[in-house]
């Protein structure tokens, strides 16, 4: 028996919004420690890794490990039927071929349930090696989304250059060149507005804008985003999900032909 309950459907809606542009379907691996999802996007350029800890749920029960392959378009249709403040419960029997998603209004006066067919996706998890990153940048998630959106107008690629002075995002195309520099913030009243750079070595890497923009669909989940970079390895873009877990996106760099 698997049962997981969240106080607000809005969190699940935001999580789905954060992955459904990259993935058509994905396997949710459930164990007593929580829910894990790992999947490459269709073009195998990026990888999404979602971790939801069992202690972040209002109720969590998972008697046997369970892999639930879900069509994310179908899941989006179901979540559209929930009000943001509804409780949401996901339930499945062991070895089931369906999952039930139930919404309850705060006053319990409206209860709806949706049964969704599961898919056998047969996905294998990739092993992600530990990396000592050269640069780790923490910045407001909204600012990162704004920069990715703005620079996508100028080029398919964005160059991220991180030094101890700050982080620079650049794009160059037919229109010309765009550069956006962010300095590390000195002192800020609000932690969520800070730009913090931890640098071991300066690093310059090139990434495809369309994937960065897809990752920023996670912005509503978190006030801050963390970018971890190292020469010739994938960028890690991480959004914390408060009291519940995190979503990480890995993006392969572009290199000189």
């Amino acid at each position: 028996m698997f049962e997981a309950r969240l106080g607000q459907a809005t969190i699940l809606k935001k999580i789905l919004d954060a992955i459904k542009d990259l993935l058509n379907e994905a396997t949710f691996d459930c164990s007593d420690s929580g829910i894990q999802l790992q999947a490459m996007d269709n073009s195998h350029v990026s990888l999404v890794s979602l971790t939801l800890r069992s202690d972040g749920f209002d109720k969590f029960r998972c008697d046997r490990n369970l892999s639930m392959g879900m069509n994310l378009g179908s899941m989006a249709k179901i979540l559209k039927c929930a009000n943001n403040e509804d409780n949401v419960t996901m339930k499945a029997q062991d070895n089931a071929d369906t999952v039930t998603i139930m919404f309850e209004s705060a006053n319990q006066e409206k209860v709806s349930d949706y049964e969704m067919k599961l898919m056998n996706l047969d996905q294998e998890h990739l092993g992600i090696p530990e990396t000592d990153f050269s640069c780790v940048v923490r910045m407001p998630a909204m600012e990162f989304a704004r920069i990715c959106r703005d620079l996508a107008q100028f080029s398919e690629s964005v160059v991220i250059c991180c030094t101890k002075e700050g982080v620079k995002f650049s794009a160059s195309g037919d229109v010309g060149t765009a550069n956006i520099k962010l300095a590390q913030t000195g002192s800020v009243d609000k932690e969520e507005e800070a730009v913090i750079i931890e640098m071991q070595e300066p690093v310059t890497l090139t990434f495809a804008c369309r994937y960065l923009n897809a990752f920023t669909k996670a912005t509503p989940l978190s006030t801050q985003v963390q970018l971890s970079m190292c020469a010739d390895v994938p960028l890690v873009v991480e959004y914390a999900i408060k009291d519940l877990g995190h979503i990480r996106y890995y993006l392969a760099p572009k290199i000189e032909d």
Binding site: H44, S46, E124, L126, A252, I255, E256, D257
Partner: peptide, 14 residues
């Protein structure tokens, strides 16, 4: 022009 690498070349298959 730059060449886009695939993500799986950085990770290990089980």
């Amino acid at each position: 022009t730059k060449f886009q690498l695939g993500i799986s070349m950085f990770f290990t298959w089980p």
